[in-house]
Simulated assay, not measured.
Amino acid sequence: MTDTAAETLSVVVEREVAYPPEKIWRALTEPHLIEEWLMKNDFKPVADHRFNLRGDWGTVDCQVRAIEPNKMLSYTWDALGLKSIVTWTLTPTSAGTHLRMEQSGFRQDQQQAYQGAKYGWQRFFATLEQVLARID
């Protein structure tokens, strides 16, 4: 029996954010806010909705897999030969929210994509926090 989880890599970014889950949820699900911290998009917070993220370097084809308002959002991320899954988890804390993002499904031969995602998500998180500080 093979353990497929051992055969793929995941990028995980976790932060304590000083905002309630409802505010972070808006930044994760409202297209104009997603565009400010991630990419242009046609996202809708609806299960099975297919959407695109569009950056200068190309397009990411996505599909909403699971959605639990203010708690969890999961979607596929298919770009440049990488088929992965991005899952956001929001857990309320006394100081705000524990925000966790995991992008899973990097094959061992996708080191460049994996390293790029590790770098990219750190940048996206920094920009996300700026957007959160600005919105009401």
Rank of each mutant, 00 (worst) to 15 (best):
Gln111Ile: 12
His98Phe: 07
Arg100Met: 10
Gln115Gly: 06
Gly116Lys: 06
Gln112Asn: 07
Lys118Pro: 02
Asp109Cys: 10
Ala113Asn: 10
Gln122Glu: 13
His98Gln: 14
Gln111Met: 15
Gln108Asp: 11
Tyr114Arg: 00
Tyr114Gly: 01
Gly120Ile: 00
Arg100Glu: 12
Leu99Phe: 13
Gly120Trp: 03
Thr93Ile: 08
Gly120Ala: 05
Gln111Asn: 13
Thr93Ser: 09
Gly96Pro: 05
Tyr114Leu: 10
Phe124Arg: 03
Ser94Asp: 14
Gly120Gln: 01
Gly116Asp: 00
Met101Leu: 15
Gln111Asp: 15
Thr93Val: 04
Gln110Val: 02
Ala95Phe: 10
Gln108Thr: 15
Gln108His: 15
Gln112Phe: 12
Asp109Gly: 13
Gly105Tyr: 04
Gln115Asp: 15
Thr93Asn: 06
Gly105Pro: 03
Gln108Leu: 15
Gly96Leu: 05
Glu102Cys: 05
Trp121Asn: 01
Trp121Tyr: 11
Phe106Tyr: 14
Gln111Tyr: 12
Glu102Phe: 02
Pro92Gln: 09
Gln110Gly: 12
Pro92Ile: 05
Gln103Trp: 02
Arg107Tyr: 14
Trp121Cys: 02
Tyr119Gln: 14
Phe124Gly: 01
His98Trp: 06
Tyr114Gln: 01
Asp109Ile: 03
Thr97Ser: 08
Arg107Phe: 13
Gly105Asp: 02
Glu102His: 07
Glu102Ala: 08
Ala117Gln: 07
Tyr119Met: 06
Lys118Ser: 10
Glu102Thr: 09
Gln111Leu: 13
Lys118Gln: 15
Thr93Phe: 08
Arg100Ala: 05
Gly96Ser: 11
Arg123Ser: 12
Phe124Met: 05
Gln103Leu: 11
Tyr114Met: 04
Phe106Ser: 00
Trp121Met: 04
Gly116His: 05
Pro92Arg: 05
Gln110Leu: 12
Gly96Lys: 00
Tyr119Glu: 09
Ala95Cys: 06
Gln112Glu: 12
Ser104Leu: 09
Tyr114Val: 00
Ala95Glu: 12
Tyr114Glu: 01
Leu99Trp: 00
Met101Trp: 06
Gln103Ser: 11
Ser104Arg: 14
Gly116Ile: 00
Gly116Met: 06
Phe106Asp: 03
Phe124Val: 02
Thr97Ile: 02
Ala117Val: 01
Gly96Phe: 09
Arg123Met: 13
Ser104Glu: 13
Ser94Gly: 14
Ala113Asp: 07
Thr97Gly: 04
Gln110Lys: 14
His98Met: 10
Pro92Ala: 10
Asp109Gln: 15
Gln111Cys: 09
Gln122Ile: 02
Ala95Pro: 03
Tyr114Ala: 00
Gly105His: 08
Tyr114Asp: 01
Gly120Tyr: 03
Met101Arg: 04
Thr97Leu: 04
Thr97His: 03
Arg100Asp: 04
Phe106Gly: 00
Gln115Pro: 07
Ala95Met: 10
Lys118Glu: 12
Trp121Glu: 01
Ala113Ser: 14
Arg100Val: 10
Ala95Asp: 09
Arg107Lys: 15
Gln112Gly: 04
Arg123Asp: 11
Gln122Pro: 00
Lys118Ile: 03
Gln103Phe: 06
Gln111His: 11
His98Tyr: 09
Gly116Tyr: 02
Ser94Gln: 15
Ser104His: 13
Gly116Asn: 05
Thr97Glu: 07
Met101Ser: 08
Met101Glu: 10
Phe106Thr: 02
Ser104Pro: 11
